[in-house]
Simulated scan of single mutants.
Amino acid sequence: MRIDSNTIFIPGATSGIGLALALRLQEAGNTVIVGGRRTELLADIAGRHPGIDTVRIDTTDADSIAEASREVIARHPSLNVVVAMAGIMRAEDWTTPAGFVETAEATVTTNLLGPIRLIGALIEHLRAQPAATIMTVSSGLAFAPLRVTPSYNATKAAIHMLSESLRLQLAGTSVEVLELEPPAVQTDLMPGHAENPFAMPLDEFADEVMSILAAGEATEIQVERVKFLRYGEARGDYAQVVATLNRTDPHAAA
């Protein structure tokens, strides 16, 4: 993925990692469209950051994804990058019979079905571009589980394998597949996350991601902090990684 001169759609970029990257990508010379569910947040972003376009999208709703995708293509026919950023992270207790199913279903709908539907709505358009990119967003928890978030862990592991598979299927086309793998980052993804001393400062994370993208060599976008989780099995210390992750802090990675 080149670092400038793209037209980039980022659903789920009204705050946190998504917004931080949206602002840096615009500053780097890209046209950026931010998607989100809350129109007041979109209006605020558009007002504070001239040049960023916005579109309302509810990534839990198949019809909303289809409509927003059509709108973005109509307004920005040069669209060539989509970043499937939207996601939720919620604690679950699977030891209680009715304590987790609703949360698990919402997590799967947002974190897995959302990106699948988004890519499905845009893939034909992206394949028609001379150079295009699909960026998925998994997590360090795709590779080592946090005890309190089983469905989040599972959806991010699924996103990792989906990314690997799409990369194989789209080999030889104009579409590349990148996978962003964040560690814990100081955002509002979960209560207390923004103040988590074990999490990576947001600006530090976003700056490192931009440096990796500028280098243009990686298909898995990994800041240094996530490699402890990502490569536990390869190093042979997976059990220790899992133990450390779940002993250190309940929100030690995202």
Rank of each mutant, 00 (worst) to 15 (best):
I73F: 03
P191A: 05
V148D: 15
A106I: 02
V137Q: 02
I65W: 10
P77F: 02
Y152D: 00
L170C: 15
T96K: 14
A74Y: 14
L122K: 02
P77W: 03
T110G: 07
S78L: 04
V81G: 02
P77G: 07
A121I: 06
T173I: 11
G172R: 13
L166R: 01
T96C: 14
R90D: 09
T155K: 06
S78N: 11
T96Y: 10
G192E: 07
F143W: 12
Q129T: 01
V175S: 02
P182K: 01
T187Q: 08
F198Y: 15
G87H: 06
V177R: 02
L112I: 05
L180Y: 08
P77R: 08
T136N: 14
D93G: 13
G192P: 09
W94V: 12
V177K: 01
S139R: 01
R127Y: 05
V175K: 05
M161S: 13
L178H: 06
R127L: 09
H125M: 00
M190N: 12
T107V: 06
V81W: 00
T103A: 11
L112E: 10
R90Q: 14
A86S: 12
A68F: 10
M190L: 12
S151A: 10
A128D: 11
L79H: 00
E71V: 09
A158G: 11
L162R: 04
A194P: 15
L170S: 08
E176F: 04
P115Y: 07
L118V: 03
G172H: 13
R75P: 03
L113T: 10
A98G: 12
S151M: 04
I123H: 00
N111C: 04
L118G: 06
V82G: 00
A74D: 15
P77I: 04
T95S: 15
A132S: 11
S163T: 10
S69A: 13
N80A: 00
A171I: 07
P191N: 07
A98R: 13
